[in-house]
Simulated assay, not measured.
Amino acid sequence: MPQIINSRCVLAVRDLAAATQFYMDVLGFQRDCGDGVDGWSFLSRNGFRLMLGECRDATPAGELGDHSWFVHLIVDDVDRLHDEVASRGAEILSQPQTRPWGLREFVLRTPDGHRIVFGEPVTANGNKE
């Protein structure tokens, strides 16, 4: 059976240059290829890959209510990542907290209004796995 060997999430953004700058400077992504002149930015951070597509007339994610949730990412040090992106100006919606479902999580909002959850697995007593 053929296997899916990789993926790249796609987000519509209203201002490609500003969104690309945010993902690189605040969230620590790197540009994989291209310069955005074709309306696309191909970015990644570690194994997570992202395409930003400029859609100036699209409804901003911040106006989509519950549909502005973008992705839930599992990381290896959620508190350190929180401190990193917060120090770079990310809009933090919820501080890191241990949840009953076995993850320590925080949520941020991008300038376009997409909400991203970062989580780290923890044991029943709240310790990191």
Results as ranks from 00 to 15, higher is better:
M1F: 06
Q3D: 12
I4H: 09
I4P: 14
I5R: 14
N6H: 14
S7D: 05
R8V: 04
C9W: 05
C9F: 10
C9V: 03
C9Q: 08
A12Q: 03
R14D: 00
D15V: 00
D15I: 02
D15R: 04
L16A: 01
L16K: 02
L16R: 02
Q21Y: 03
F22T: 01
M24D: 00
V26L: 00
V26E: 00
L27I: 07
L27N: 10
L27E: 03
G28P: 06
G28H: 12
Q30L: 06
R31S: 04
R31Q: 09
D32Q: 11
C33W: 08
G34A: 00
G34S: 00
D35C: 08
D35W: 04
G36F: 00
D38R: 10
W40P: 02
S41E: 02
S41D: 01
S41Q: 05
S44L: 04
R45M: 03
R45W: 00
G47A: 13
F48N: 05
F48H: 06
R49M: 09
R49G: 07
L50G: 04
M51E: 12
M51W: 08
M51R: 12
L52Q: 06
L52P: 04
L52W: 05
G53L: 12
E54R: 13
C55I: 00
R56C: 02
R56P: 02
D57G: 07
A58P: 02
T59C: 13
T59L: 15
A61F: 05
G62C: 05
E63R: 15
L64K: 14
D66T: 14
H67C: 09
S68F: 07
F70D: 10
F70Q: 12
V71S: 12
H72M: 12
H72T: 06
H72Q: 11
L73Y: 09
I74H: 08
V75P: 01
D76A: 11
V78H: 10
R80G: 09
R80K: 15
R80H: 13
L81V: 10
L81W: 03
H82G: 07
V85I: 15
A86Y: 09
A86F: 10
A86N: 15
S87W: 01
R88N: 03
A90H: 01
A90K: 04
E91D: 12
E91C: 13
I92Q: 05
L93Y: 06
L93V: 11
S94C: 07
S94L: 05
Q95C: 12
Q95K: 15
P96M: 07
Q97L: 04
P100H: 05
W101P: 04
G102H: 09
L103S: 06
E105M: 10
E105T: 13
V107L: 13
V107M: 12
L108C: 14
D112G: 07
G113L: 05
G113P: 03
R115S: 09
R115F: 01
I116Q: 08
F118T: 07
F118I: 13
F118C: 10
G119C: 04
E120W: 03
P121L: 14
P121K: 15
P121Q: 14
V122G: 08
G126R: 08
N127C: 07
N127Q: 10
N127E: 08
E129N: 15
E129K: 15
